[in-house]
Simulated scan of single mutants.
Amino acid sequence: VYNGGDHSGFLLEGLILPPVLIVDVILGLLGNVVALWIFCFKLKSWNPNNLFLFNLVIADFLALVSLPLRIDALLRGHWVFGDSLCRINLFLMFSNRSASIALMTVVAVYRYLKVVHPHHRFNSMNKRQAAFLSLFVWLLVISPRVPMLAYNHIKGSGNATQCFFFTSYKEASWAIIFLVGMHRILTVLEFIFPLALLLFCSIRISRFLKKRQMGKPDKVRKAMRVCVAIVVVFLVCFFPTTVTTVGVWAIRSYRPWDCDSFYTFIQLNIVSLGLNFLNSALDPVVYVFSSSMFRRALCSSLPRTLRCRRLCEEATLDGSWSPEPACWCCSFKGCLKPSA
């Protein structure tokens, strides 16, 4: 969050961000708590895809947990939780945003290799290797954010105290200026490269399936839905922040005298952060599209009258039907049990 010294500008983010973040937290925590419960207690077997999705749940959950303090500060108009929580709060917000992007990309690439290159050695990885890959992704995205924990981001005093990472350059040290610059570079790169990979995977899957005319159209459609869902979520949640970040960067570099435009882009950049965390609320949709085991576990957890025929049929098609009555899917005509 930026503070250029003029607190009248705080009104825009103070008016728009709180309701947006509150919606993000409510929807996101509901979806991700359910997802955590299914992964921890209802999923009977694990594969690499589910391990990647589980790590995505953790990243989203930690990002959402950091938001109530930010909402409180926006509603009060100042930060009351001290320096240590300020550092932790900023670290959780930005590092888990990066982790969510990286893990979404891994899920899409994994799906792409499964469809287009089924014999690729990446597809033969076991759960242990998938866990190591997930750990590597976490280390990769967290490492650039660790320096956030080393510096004081509290500005002002008394009722004017704020927990800001994007500080006024007039009062910031060279280290903070470097961190802010690195953050903006990462914000752009974290959008461009994953988006390029996501689009590549989607286009290649589509062309491959049309060319091969594979005999399992349901499996084909599911693979495409995964990539399309991830691309749509990615664009909606992260494109506005990337555009406004580039705008801030360009104005500061090429029009440093244009304070009004600079301030406008800073405010739009702050407000767009609300969409970043909408990603954590939408990711449970990705879990439903990405994992048949997750869908079946979700189906078995619902009241029998709410379970859908489609999930039931899907379970019989891939041979993974569980004969337990709790896993039967029902329609308005009664309970459906797969034929032998």
Score class of each variant (00 low, 15 high):
C227M: 13
R121W: 07
P217G: 03
K219P: 00
G181R: 12
V232W: 01
F234L: 10
K216N: 02
E190S: 11
F200Y: 14
G158T: 13
Q162N: 09
I192D: 05
V232K: 01
F200R: 05
L195Q: 04
A131K: 13
C201S: 14
T241N: 05
A130G: 13
A131V: 03
R128H: 09
R221Y: 09
F178C: 09
S124I: 04
I185P: 11
L195C: 13
F166I: 15
F166A: 12
K222C: 13
L179E: 04
L139F: 13
L199K: 00
H153E: 13
F166S: 08
L139V: 12
S134I: 11
V137E: 00
T187Y: 11
C237W: 08
V232E: 01
S143H: 08
S143D: 09
I177A: 13
N152P: 15
I154T: 07
V220N: 13
K155D: 03
R145V: 11
L149G: 01
L189H: 09
V233H: 06
K210F: 02
V243W: 04
T187V: 10
E171Q: 12
R184P: 09
E190R: 01
F132W: 09
L149E: 03
I142N: 08
R212W: 03
Q213K: 02
S206D: 03
M125I: 11
Q213C: 04
E171P: 15
I176L: 15
I154W: 06
L186A: 11
S168E: 12
T242L: 15
F136P: 11
T161H: 00
M148S: 02
R121F: 08
I142Q: 06
F136A: 14
V226T: 11
F165N: 07
S134Y: 00
M224A: 06
V141R: 01
F166V: 15
T242C: 15
F165P: 09
T187F: 00
F166H: 12
Q213N: 04
L135T: 00
L140G: 08
R128V: 15
V180F: 06
F164G: 02
T161C: 01
A172P: 05
A223D: 10
D218I: 03
V243R: 04
Y151D: 02
K170V: 01
H119G: 11
R121L: 09
F239T: 15
R204T: 02
G156S: 06
L133M: 04
C201H: 00
H119N: 05
A196M: 05
N152Q: 02
S143A: 12
A223Y: 04
M125R: 02
F122H: 09
H119C: 05
F238Q: 07
V188S: 10
